[in-house]
Design a binder for these strands. Structure first.
Lengths: 261, 261
DNA sequence: AAAATAGTGTCTCTGAGACACTATATA
DNA sequence: TATATAGTGTCTCAGAGACACTATTTT
C-alpha cells in the first residue's frame, strides 16, 4: 500500500477498542490424505485407496475428548493463510502440499470460549507426512478417519462436522474441475491409477470409456501428456498389472469450463 | 450444537483475553450491477450494457477522500454473512439480490486502524436498487464505476483494488460455470440478451453459433426453457428487434461440469 | 492354457462449426 | 424496397458410447 504523509497520521482521538472485538481468529485445516493399501492377491493389482481426514482429540475444555480439526490462532504479524501454512507445517513437518482456503465460520455461539471466528482451509497431503507427525508428537492423539466415518459416526467438536462436509463437497468439485488429482498421484502414473483416484474421491464418477476419451479427444489432450524417455520412446509401467500400461503426467494446463460452450 | 452439562462448564481460570485479539472483522461488499442504457437509433436495438461497481468515498481517516467498498463491522450476535446481508440492505434498501462469499483479507498492515481482518463478499444487484440508495442518503458520496475504471484509474482505499480484482475474476468464472446470468436478466429474456450479458461480464466469450448450440444440444437443454403461455404456445418478444425472438427462462438446473467427461 | 489388465477396431449417432439461406418486422 | 435481427438447412467432421476384439504378461 502506498500512502502519503497526510493521511497516514492517525488521529489522536481514534480508539480501536470502542466496540466489542472478536476473541480470536483461528485457522482450522481439513487435512485430506489418500491412503494406499496394497492388496495381497495372486496377481498384481492396484492398491486399495481411501480418502481420509486427520483429526486431533481435544484434551481440554471445550469439547474435551471430542475429535477436532487441527488449527491454531492467527497472530497479528501474519495473514490467515500464513497461519494455516504454519499450522500445516507443524502438523506434517513438511512445507509442501496443496493448501487452499475454504471459508469462514462465524455463527454466534460456535465456540463456547467466546467470539471466535474460524477460517477453514483444506489441505491435500501425502500419507507419509502424517505418519511422520504421529511419530514426532505422541503427546497428542492423532487419528486418520475415512471421510464417511468422520462425517457420520464421530463426535466432533465445535462446528467441525459442517466444515468437514463443506470441505468434502469442495474437494469433490475440485477433483472433477481441476487437476488436483495430481496431488494424490506420483509424478508419472497410469490412467487406471488416475481413474481410481478420481473414483475414490468422487464415487459417483463413472466413465466406461475413460482411457479412450482421455487419449483420443482433442479437448483433453491439453491436460495429460505421455511420459517419454530421452530418445522420445513412450514409457510404461507394469507395477500394477500384467500388461504394462502407458505412463502419463499432468501438464500445466488449467482447462476452463463453461456451461455455454 | 448439542453439549452435555459436564463439558459446558467453563473453567474459572479460562481467560479469553490472554492473547492479542483482532480489532475488528468487517464485511466488505463488491456490489456489481449491469447498467442498461438505451441507444438512440433509428431501429430497435439492444441497450448498451456495462458492468459497474458501487463505491463510497471515504470522509474520515484513514484514506479520507479515497474510494472504498461499502462495508461494516460484524457484531458478536451475528454471523459474517448476516453482517454482509445487513450491509447490503442498508446500501440498497432491498433484501434481495445475489450475495456470495468471496474470501478473507488479512495481510498485516492492510488497515492502519489496527488488526482488522476483512471478509469480502460480492453482490449482484439491479441498477434501480442503487439509485434508490443514492437518493436516500445524499450525505455520503456514492459512485458507480465501470469495472476497468475502478481497477485501473481510481485511487482506492485499503486493499480494495485487490478485492475488486478477485471479485471480478470470480464473477467471470461464475458467469461461465453457473447460471448467475439470471441475476442480470428479467425473468423472461431472449437469447441475444443472454449472450450480451455474458459478453458484458466476460468480453472474451465468443460463440458464433450461440443460438444454435443452446437450443439444439441435449446437454444445454437442461438449463434453459422456452416461455409458453397457458395454452402452451411459445412466447416471443420484439422489444429489441424487428423480427420477434423466442423468450427463454432459466430452469433450476445447476449443471455439473467436469474436465474428464 | 487360463487369467488379468491394457488397449484397439469399428459401428452408430449426436452435436460442433461454418456459411449460406429464409423469415419477420420496420424505416 | 432496403435493412436489421431471428432463426434454419445442410454439409462436414470430431467425438461419445457400446461392445467385441486383440495384445501383453503372469500364473
Amino acid at each position: 500500500m502506498i500512502m502519503n504523509e497526510e493521511e497516514e497520521k492517525q488521529p489522536k482521538n481514534y480508539n480501536t477498542q470502542k466496540y466489542r472485538t472478536p476473541d480470536g481468529v483461528p485457522a482450522d485445516i481439513v487435512m485430506f490424505t489418500l491412503t494406499k493399501r496394497e492388496r495381497k492377491t495372486v496377481t498384481k493389482t492396484l492398491p486399495i485407496r481411501e480418502l481420509k481426514v486427520m483429526l486431533i482429540r481435544r484434551r481440554s475444555w471445550p469439547f474435551a475428548g471430542k475429535w477436532a480439526l487441527p488449527g491454531g490462532f492467527c497472530r497479528e504479524s501474519e495473514s490467515i493463510y500464513d497461519a494455516a501454512k504454519r499450522e500445516l507445517k507443524e502438523e506434517t513437518g513438511v512445507d509442501g502440499g496443496h493448501l487452499e482456503y475454504l471459508g469462514v465460520y462465524s455463527q454466534p455461539g460456535r465456540d463456547p470460549r467466546g467470539w471466535i471466528i474460524s477460517n477453514a482451509f483444506f489441505a491435500l497431503v501425502e500419507e507419509w507426512m502424517l505418519e511422520q507427525r504421529q511419530a514426532a508428537d505422541d503427546a497428542e492423539e492423532v487419528g486418520l478417519f475415512g471421510i464417511h466415518e468422520a462425517l457420520e459416526q464421530l463426535e466432533l467438536a465445535f462446528d467441525h462436522r459442517e466444515i468437514i462436509r463443506d470441505a468434502y463437497i469442495k474437494i469433490q468439485q475440485k477433483m472433477l474441475q481441476t487437476t488436483i488429482a495430481k496431488q494424490f498421484l506420483p509424478k508419472h502414473f497410469t490412467l487406471s491409477e488416475l481413474y481410481q483416484v478420481i473414483q475414490t474421491v468422487v464415487p459417483e464418477f463413472k466413465e466406461p470409456n475413460f482411457i479412450r476419451k482421455i487419449t483420443s479427444t482433442q479437448s483433453r489432450q491439453g491436460i495429460l501428456e505421455e511420459v517419454r524417455d530421452e530418445t522420445g520412446k513412450k514409457l510404461s509401467s507394469n507395477q500394477y498389472s500384467q500388461r504394462s500400461a502407458q505412463l502419463y503426467m499432468f501438464t500445466d494446463d488449467v482447462p476452463l469450463l463453461s456451461i455455454y460452450t
